[in-house]
Design a protein around this nucleic acid. Structure first.
Lengths: 333, 333
DNA sequence: TCGAATGCCGCAATCGATTGCGTAAAGTCT
DNA sequence: AGACTTTACGCAATCGATTGCGGCATTCGA
């Protein structure tokens, strides 16, 4: 069964003895009671009755006429991922403040779903899109840009498109500097998805900084994979199988780090004594297990991703942004 | 800037030399090419051109006319919560199969937001709602029911409303039986949110089963709180402060359990030697850290929650459902 | 051969809000 | 007093899809 008693603009107007157009103009004027579309008295009557009847404009009718939905679509790899969920909260918060409505979909990092979900959002007439699952090389994004679809990226960047990300390269460098400073000389790298800029940049920063110290990572100890705990466990096993235990392991993501932690515990490897472990993102769980990590401003990335989309929609131009990370030292390294 | 070249029904019809109504009927007829609304030839031309031009119906125009949005709203306490995120995935999956579109919002378990988000969804003309954040006593739900709004509950039940949940009471009993069978005699209980049925039922099952063995939990060692890791840490500290360490601790939620695990590690308490620990839900993290837990069919709860909403919307009646839990024994207990 | 049945499709109203254009009344200015 | 500007609204078209009601043709049975 439906819900609303369906109080329409016309109904209000009828009851007020006014024309719907007048009521519409008054109700929509951002100047509120200072609107010039009716006399003081009329305006007050309109607001009062709208309030009393609980009038809500029908957004479908409005967007049919205006061709704007005030809805934006967000595509993330996985909602269960704390990091993206937090960014989404930031997006949604900013969107609400601007009178926008958001809708999320997850793509499971599968290119087909990435495309399908975005198209579905566009079918629903989203005014713009925000992607949290961009690949570094992403032909679909190029296609959308060509079609003139407004969108921005968060979390992961892709050359040629507007994005808000953490300065992952610098984050990777911080980890390397910290580990080197504490005397570590051999390393394992749980590298994440090699097609995502988060992985690429964090690894690059890490490796570049190590190289400046004349150090490096044995390729057999660089394990790519996903961003969740099981993937981290797998990667850790791979590193252990590659020979002697490295003095430190950098996982480009906290969940992967925690997965590795589980493997270490099972193997009787103590952290940080036998090997140091560093994650990335500073999720709450990292705090709970004492994981040293790099804090990325997830919520803010989301907010700015939305603001940037607003700029695009309003025809202002906008530059990609990289927000500074912060090293959080706990007990694991 | 927008996106679509805006190929409308009328445009298609014009190009085909047909009337928009004919095109509409053919395109919407579930019988597809067997529709009786046009000649075979005409039908083929319609489908071909629609395909070629990439026609997508404007859902706003359609729902304006039909007063159905084919959109349902979902309210969860927190998107970052793996459990609810998974249920949402189940909901969304089932919804897609039925041609429905879903929108999520989070309420942070705050009654004001619970209400506000739901109203916002209704303003957007959702055909129905699914709540994952119901309180055991929830006046807002009663109000919605009275208003005739169609909704169902997932994860948490509330007497008098339709819900799909895990059989939490039985799950709680399983934990108690398992711990008692392995010789534990004193217990701590990380009880979660006392206004949520998940907490209430799991605790009740746990306590009832213990009572049948002549056992119980010291009230000072029953710590309520939230469902995340920090809340679990807090609760664990509270239990430790209550005196001698109990032989086992049951956390009604995996995240809380992991938070507790962090505190135990910090205090040098080993698991399961010094104390056993059991969680609830069987999130992937539980597997990674070897946590014994109760598996609840989260994804399926979501799916069924949606199916049940369909029943309500279609005027069929539906009974609340409780899905069976499964004890997953790992190393922590 | 005529009326009825059926097949195929168009007309026009409708959903609710928005907006360009128009207008009557009141106020301002010279 | 006449001309001009505001103020305060209303009319009617519009957005795109849906749908009740008909209408015109062809076919079939009698």
């Amino acid at each position: 069964m439906g819900a609303r008693p369906a109080v329409t603009l016309k109904a209000l107007a009828g009851e007020l003895g006014l024309n719907a157009s007048t009521v519409s103009r008054v109700l929509n004027d951002p100047k509120g009671l200072d609107s010039k579309w009716a006399s003081r008295d009329t305006k007050e009557r309109i607001f009062a009755l709208a309030e009393e009847r609980g009038y809500r404009k029908n957004p479908y009718a409005a967007s049919l006429r205006t061709a704007k939905s005030h809805m934006i679509g967000v595509v993330v790899p996985r909602l269960q991922d704390y990091v993206l969920a937090t960014m989404y909260e930031g997006i949604d918060e900013a969107a609400s403040e601007h009178g926008y409505f958001t809708v999320v979909s997850n793509s499971l990092d599968a290119p087909a779903a990435h495309r399908a979900k975005a198209e579905k959002l566009l079918d629903r007439r989203a005014d713009g899109l925000i992607f949290g699952d961009a690949l570094f090389e992403d032909p679909f994004l190029d296609e959308l840009a060509k079609r003139g679809v407004a969108f921005t990226l968060v979390s992961r960047r892709s050359p040629g498109h507007r994005s808000v990300t953490c300065d992952d390269y610098t984050g990777g460098r911080m980890v390397a500097e910290h580990l080197v400073a504490s005397g570590r000389r051999t390393f394992g790298l749980i590298a994440g998805n090699p097609r995502a800029s988060t992985s690429i940049d964090r690894c690059a920063g890490f490796l570049d900084a190590l190289a400046e110290h004349g150090l490096g990572v044995d390729p057999a100890r660089m394990a790519p994979g996903g961003f969740d705990a099981p993937a981290g466990s797998l990667a850790a096993e791979q590193i252990l199988a590659a020979g002697p235990l490295p003095e430190a392991v950098f996982a480009v993501n906290d969940f992967a780090a925690i997965g590795a932690l589980g493997v270490f515990a099972r193997e009787g490897i103590t952290v940080p004594e036998d090997t140091a472990l560093v994650g990335f993102n500073d999720t709450p769980l990292a705090g709970s297990v004492g994981l040293t990590t790099v804090r990325s401003p997830m919520h803010r990335i989301g907010r700015q991703g939305f603001e940037m989309l607003m700029d695009v929609l309003d025809g202002r131009d906008a530059e990609s942004i990289q927000l500074p990370p912060e090293l959080i030292v706990r007990t694991s390294a």
